[in-house]
Amino acid sequence: MAHMMADSSPTTGLKQRLAHPPTKVRSKFVRVLRAYPLVFIGGLMVLALIFVAVFADKLATFNPNFQFANGLAPDGAPLAPNHTFIMGTDDLGRDVYSRLLFGARVSLEVGVFASLISLFIGTTLGIISGYYGGFVDSVIMRITDIMLAFPFILFVVALVAVLSPSITNIFIAIGVLGWAVTARIVRAEVMKVKEFEYVQAARALGSRQWRILFKIILPNIMAPVIVLTTLAIGNNMLLESTLSYLGIGVQPPTASWGSMLSEGQQVFEYAPWLLYYPGLALMLAVLGFNLLGDGLRELFNPRRVR
């Protein structure tokens, strides 16, 4: 708020000074940054990941799928990190650094798109369920219960098996199966928010149903949904690597952090860098999204921004 009323009072005409002279008002960005440094750190990590994924072909030193003849030791063992291959090579003589960069692309793509699909399905069903209640609510919630009770990995395995494994099918499978938690949270939030007087007030203003749902209720439930989605991106990246690790995710030779871990596991004893780098990348990426999600929860709540 600006501090402007310095001169004379309109009612008494007396000159008055301010008890607390206005100080320089910091921009909202700076204030948020100081209050929640974790948003900043998480945001930087996510930005770095996005940068790497987008410019993977510019940053990579080699073709990630090329099996170099000089990429293996004479006895056929992978090469440790050196000047040519800065993160070493894998057991087929491919450059780990380049594979890691291209793997970021796959991870991010699956994480983001799967989460968006879950977000869309979960929010839509959750809003309908929470707002209308009754029979519709019961049906949607029972479906949600089934989704939550079903072994998730098994479900994805079955779905991917039917759809045949490809990046697109993986994120569709993860997204379509992962909406249940979102739907529940959205439903609970809608049930809480719809009882507030401002929803009644909006009706008394002559708002249409869709206006109440999407302009009045939706913005009020977005904070937890955004946090959930950000955390879900990290989670879905982990899930993708799990699927790839199990061999039903991204198919060779395409690089993914999960498949790199899975391949590296076989030669772990004498080539540990094959697990270190993709494992570290995965951990940092998920951590970045989690920090960002926690920070956003604070940021998107108008009452908490100082």
């Binding site: 507030f196 007087e197 401002y198 913005p219 009020n220 977005m222 108008p302």
Partner: peptide
Amino acid sequence: EPMTSLNPV
């Protein structure tokens, strides 16, 4: 209730 009649967002 003026405290809850306005939409906080």
